[in-house]
Amino acid sequence: MTTATAQAKDQATIACHDLAFGYDSKPLLQKVNIAIPQGDFVCVVGPNGSGKTTLLKLALGLLQPTSGRIEIFGKAPRHARGRIGYVPQHPRLDPLFPVSALDVTLMGRLGRAPSLLSWRNRDQERARQALDEVGLGDRMDHHFAALSGGQKQRVLIARALAGDPELLLLDEPTAGLDAHVEEGFYRLLEELNKRLTIVLVSHDLGFVSGFVKSVVCVGHDVMVHPTSEITGEIIADLYGSDMRLVRHDHRCSEEGHQC
């Protein structure tokens, strides 16, 4: 390894070194070696059950690797949690839960606020800012359950932003969203990508739009590709031969070709 690449790896936001993971001795992920640089916008794709969400949970330190290691900002994930914003899938949350949009967003301040008694003004202020940033400043007091799917997803992003993260991890953020909602959603992520590294997991390749800078394909191997390198062959290899590639990266930005 040359000094230059060693340095690049030190600076990586997420770095996996020979990472392996399996449930009950059945290997799911093997020999994963990837490095995601700061400021990247990564989409993790692969068929259902390939280990995409597992990779995300390893990055969060919710699961421990069977062998190898994963580092976030050069540290074990548990010690980097204060710098990670996590956005889970919203449909698994109880729809009748008695919380307002602001209540949910404030939960993103738990790691930073004193543990006893109520929220400080500072926490409330930061949560309001985060809701403003995702375009829900006028819905703060609305019942979380009464918001639309897209709005709930935005509240969960605001909750992650309220903790002032440097890395945003999203699990299937567009599951169940209408196409036009999805479009606005990606524009929000593009805006956030100006200051945050973003990694999102998706089971479909439909999103690989101009916003995404690189793609991590999870199959028998885990590989990073710049968006422009995604070919029919890679997809056929990942999803099986029935898949067809529909080209929609017609904008062909420079970023798409830099690698």
């Binding site: 969060l60 919710l62 949690r81 990670i84 996590y86 889970p88 949350l93 109880d94 839960f97 919380v99 209540d103 949910v104 404030l106 939960m107 993103g108 738990l110 790691g111 606020a113 543990s115 109520s118 929220w119 909750r159 903790g163």
Partner: peptide, 16 residues
């Protein structure tokens, strides 16, 4: 604060 967060989304609360 913690009780509400644990009931709403315990995984997220753990990450906090």
């Amino acid at each position: 604060k913690q009780l509400l967060a644990v009931c709403f989304d315990s995984e997220f609360a753990a990450l906090q």
